[in-house]
């Protein structure tokens, strides 16, 4: 194994672990703080500028840096004519939107993963721990949703549904006769 392939493997592993972390971080900010902020800063001349985007569920606010805050009006006009400034501005704008797109892709991948564990029967059990884990930071509660998402992903939904149905049958055997018995006793007691 060459050094290059080790480096490539390391990069892939880091990327692979970073995507879910990024997705969870983004989801947590959205759910807990009601919004996530993405910032990209750059320096031109002696001044630094920041592109900032605030993403919430229903709205997106993009802040564009205004050099008029740093330069006098005539200098600002010169800056507008400067091709280097425009190239720099466009380059960092591109980086900024790529960063936002990365967050969106991360959350899309997360959604695809979680969809298995938050829908149907299994979802009823998992959605509350998932909500508490993201909102209140009780990360250990992620164990059940992750376990079921992984189980469904690798062993299939049919097995999971069969297990859920079996459990339901057992629960029915245990609880429904008892309920019927109580219903029989209660009128007599009354």
């Amino acid at each position: 194994m060459t050094l290059h392939s080790i480096a490539l493997l390391w990069k892939k592993t880091v990327n692979w672990t970073f995507v879910p972390v990024k997705g969870l971080q983004f989801a947590r900010s959205l759910l807990k703080n009601g919004g996530h902020v993405v910032e990209t800063s750059f320096v031109f001349g002696k001044a630094s500028f920041t592109f900032k985007t605030v993403i919430s569920f229903g709205d997106i606010v993009v802040f564009i840096p205004d050099p008029a805050g740093y330069y006098a009006q005539h200098q600002w006009h010169d800056l507008c004519q400067n091709p280097h400034w425009h190239a720099c501005y466009q380059k960092y704008l591109q980086i900024h939107f790529e960063e936002i797109a990365n967050y969106f892709h991360a959350i899309e991948r997360q959604i695809a993963f979680w969809q298995n564990s938050i829908s149907g029967f299994i979802g009823i059990v998992n959605i509350y721990p998932l909500y508490r884990a993201l909102l209140l930071g009780e990360w250990f509660l992620l164990f059940f949703p992750i376990a079921s998402a992984l189980y469904i992903r690798f062993l299939g939904k049919v097995t999971a549904r069969a297990i859920a149905l079996q459990l339901w049958q057992i629960a029915k055997k245990w609880f429904i006769p008892k309920a019927a018995l109580i219903a029989k006793i209660l009128p007599k007691a009354g």
């Binding site: 229903g58 709205d59 606010v61 802040f63 564009i64 840096p65 805050g69």
Partner: peptide
């Protein structure tokens, strides 16, 4: 949690995109 889901669902009915030019923006 009910309120949270209801608000989330109502937020999804409308998307607002704002562009603002901001002076002296700090990465604070």
């Amino acid at each position: 949690m009910n309120d949270f889901i209801r608000n989330l669902a109502s937020d999804l009915l409308r998307l607002e995109i704002n562009t603002i030019i901001k002076q002296n923006m700090s990465a604070e």
